[in-house]
Amino acid sequence: MNPLVTPSIGLLFWQVVTFLVVLLLLSKFAWKPIMKALREREENIDAALSMAEKAKLEMQALKADNERLLHEARAERERILKEATDAATHLVENARAKANEEGQRMIEQARVSIVNEKKAALTEVKNLAATLSIDIAEKLIRRELQDAQAQQALVRSYLQETPLS
């Protein structure tokens, strides 16, 4: 057989001894740092995963807060719009009521003014009619009383009509 294909016992012995020495040296000097590095890497990965989970939870909380704030802002906007609409409606109604009241007051003043003007005009017409009647009566009496007999007859008729008590 070919010595390269079938190992001899001595070679096998020395390979096992060399493997054990290398294994002992690796376990003594290299295995601990490698395991330490692997543990550190595992801890770093766990820490990163927990931080990612915390960040995810914080993002969900922030999203919920943002939605709540948005809802509150919309409600506040609706409230402010309603108050503004109510205030505008109230102002319009007040202005309308004030205008109606002012119109009624002006109409009443106009009525009073018309009544007063009517009374003044009637008084003036009566005074004018009285003055005119007196003027007409004076002219008629002057015509009738041009002679002395007509004057005496008129005085007697007045005295007879006037009751003397």
Rank of each mutant, 00 (worst) to 15 (best):
R105K: 13
L26V: 05
I114D: 15
E42P: 00
L70T: 09
A84T: 10
I107H: 13
A30Y: 08
N100S: 12
Q146T: 05
I134F: 14
Y158P: 00
E101K: 12
L23Q: 05
E72K: 07
T85W: 10
E83H: 03
Q109Y: 09
D46N: 11
L12D: 01
M106H: 12
A130T: 09
A121M: 11
I34N: 00
A153M: 07
E161L: 13
M51N: 06
T162V: 06
L164D: 14
L128A: 05
Q149N: 01
A47Y: 13
K139M: 02
S157T: 02
N66P: 00
A110P: 02
E43V: 08
L164E: 13
K139T: 07
M106Y: 11
Q15C: 01
L159C: 06
V22M: 04
G10F: 08
A130M: 10
L69A: 12
E161A: 07
K139W: 03
A97M: 11
A75Q: 13
F29L: 04
E138F: 10
Q146F: 04
A61R: 09
D65V: 08
Q104W: 12
E76W: 07
I107C: 07
E144L: 02
R143C: 04
T162F: 13
S8T: 08
Q160H: 02
T123K: 15
K56R: 13
L128T: 10
I80F: 06
Q104K: 13
R156T: 09
S50K: 14
L11Q: 08
P3S: 01
L26S: 03
K119S: 04
A52E: 14
K63F: 09
V21Q: 06
Q160Y: 12
K98G: 12
E117F: 08
